[in-house]
Amino acid sequence: MIESLFFLFCFLILGEFISTLLTLPIPGSVIGMVLLTVALEFNIVKAETVKPSSKILLNNLSLLFIPPGVGLMVYFNIINEYFLPIVISYFVSTFAVLYISGIIVQRLDRS
């Protein structure tokens, strides 16, 4: 458990370091995820080593989004001001991206 947390944080910090050093708009956690995937692929880190805490974190991933989600309440005023354009754009573009990205993967695979 501690070992796996240690390795996850190693890659998180490495990712943060690269993100700050190169002033990338990509968050350190995403860079860390890519680096850890590469490390796992090349067997530099064994999957078994990082698995224990990865499992716990991913099984409860939804929970982790609740505190920032509640932050929505702070922005009610500004959303209210442009209610219609924001809400319509929000619904249409979300469903558009869902459909397009899904259909492309499914169709291209069949052909």
């Binding site: 890659f11 998180l12 850890l36 995937t37 990865s54 974190l57 991913l58 505190p67």
Partner: peptide, 19 residues
């Protein structure tokens, strides 16, 4: 915030199923 603190390592952990 201690809950969302773990978002960072959780995103890194996505490497495991990805691998």
């Amino acid at each position: 915030k201690v809950i969302s603190f773990f978002l960072g390592p959780a995103v890194v952990a996505l490497a495991v199923p990805l691998h």
